[in-house]
Design a protein around this nucleic acid. Sequence first.
DNA 1: CCACATCCATAACCGGAGGTTATCGACGCA
DNA 2: TGCGTCGATAACCTCCGGTTATGGATGTGG
Lengths: 296, 296
Amino acid sequence: MDVDTRLLRYFRAVAEEGNLTRAAARLYVSQPALTKQIRQLEERLGARLFVRSKSGMALTGPGQALAAAVPGVLGSWVEAERAVRAAEAERTRVLRIGFLASAANEKTQDVIAAFRASRPGWRVEMRQASWGAPIEGMVSGEVEAAFMRLPFPSREDFALLPLLTEPRCVAMAANHPLAQSASLRFEDLLDEPFVAAPGATGAFRDHWIAAEARGGRPVRIGAVTEHPDDWLSAIANGDGIALAPASAARYYARPDIAYREVEGIAPSTVVLAWPNTARPTPALADFIAAAREAAD
Amino acid sequence: MDVDTRLLRYFRAVAEEGNLTRAAARLYVSQPALTKQIRQLEERLGARLFVRSKSGMALTGPGQALAAAVPGVLGSWVEAERAVRAAEAERTRVLRIGFLASAANEKTQDVIAAFRASRPGWRVEMRQASWGAPIEGMVSGEVEAAFMRLPFPSREDFALLPLLTEPRCVAMAANHPLAQSASLRFEDLLDEPFVAAPGATGAFRDHWIAAEARGGRPVRIGAVTEHPDDWLSAIANGDGIALAPASAARYYARPDIAYREVEGIAPSTVVLAWPNTARPTPALADFIAAAREAAD
DNA sequence: CCACATCCATAACCGGAGGTTATCGACGCA
DNA sequence: TGCGTCGATAACCTCCGGTTATGGATGTGG
């Protein structure tokens, strides 16, 4: 029997959510479409996968068997995709590197320059990773490695090489009252609304609201933004303030935004990350070596 | 990126055949359909997978990478399918057992009876395996095990339990001249046309034309049949003769067909086969135990 | 107790993807 | 030079996966 990986993703979403409506929303399809697809999957497999009730969808025995096997199928396909893209990059002498907007800094340029020197004729293509799904491009092989910032989600499948550590500062509208002071303590910011990234979940979100320094005090979200430009605009508009690495003051300098030192929060670390599911391609190995040299 | 396993099978066929037209024939689709699908796969992956030439399709580097990864993807999906069907069979208390038509005999009944005794409330569903693709049903989990005859293709992924060994005889039209003799030597049959199974390839085909006893003399195929009834009809019609296990004389007795002993050919062995990719389900384990008891 | 919210199923409709047949252009070969 | 074989292209049809709108069943709060 044939299946589409899309169908397996649908199944996985429903199994995880335990709810057709929510799963449909998560997959960006309509609920009837999901209903139809799940029914079809059940028919073709000749087994009921879920028991329907008013309070959602619960896995049956066969459903659990499928749920246990699906990650392996999807994983092996993603790996296949990665292998193809790696081979294509090798053929065209291109190394695709992703980067989180905030991870752009001088070190990045040093690494690329060193790689270029070691591999003349090769091109490095940089593509910005979305804040919402920062590691997606890496698992599917769209990029072979990426400059990211700690904390890094799902550390297990990736190798990490720390490049530099820098203090974090606070970004706020230039006309914000707190911008008067040249330096601030984090306690001064506790009541301010923050501008946050969208998919920022778990440890990553906690890090950028400095949860460890809040002592359990909740944070107020003034705006959620997807791209650096939106982020800067939101801050300039006064929707909220945000923590940022010190280098942002150089790379995202604007007249309507003030960056100020902050005492009492941990610094931020930039890393180079790459999937360690397979051996790195020779070109990537050179890039990693260049990064290792450039690291502090 | 999403794919259909069908598309991966298409790719695999083209990679193996090295030729679109032949691959299309093997897949039972038209050649333009395959052209379109392969093109689409290349576009979506952003890499050329084949170099086209007058003499066919040759894999590129990315194509080789994909070809290496595809068996893993398809294999894990087949395994998932098998797990689901096994769970469903467990739930409905059904054990599905396949059998090659020629493997039906008294021993089969003994095994089933012993299993029934050990698992009251369970049902055994027998379904006949096609001669063309005898092990298909087992890999996809449509049946959990099957009664087969040696030689068994692709032995590696299956566990085999021999059940009985019996001499082989020859089946021919009742009015065939050779039917006059009560017993024959295989050399007498060398010039006769044979009735063969369709997908009979390699060792299996060799076994049923007794290639080892022919001393290199080629065989003439008088007819190719898919089902036992066709097979019997072809023999009765005089299209050819065929080797058969001795038990066929009991299970496929017809007035217009004569079975005669043959000297000088090896006997045939019936085995119970099951996939050993995963641990057998408890019910299958009981069935295997029943078979082990019933074995000679 | 009734109005409402939630959850899944159903119906009717639409566009596109995948299949088909027919045909072409390029090349190797007898 | 004519034929056979290869893959590409065009025109067409069917069905599948998506959409919106709506219904039925079942908790739930004012």
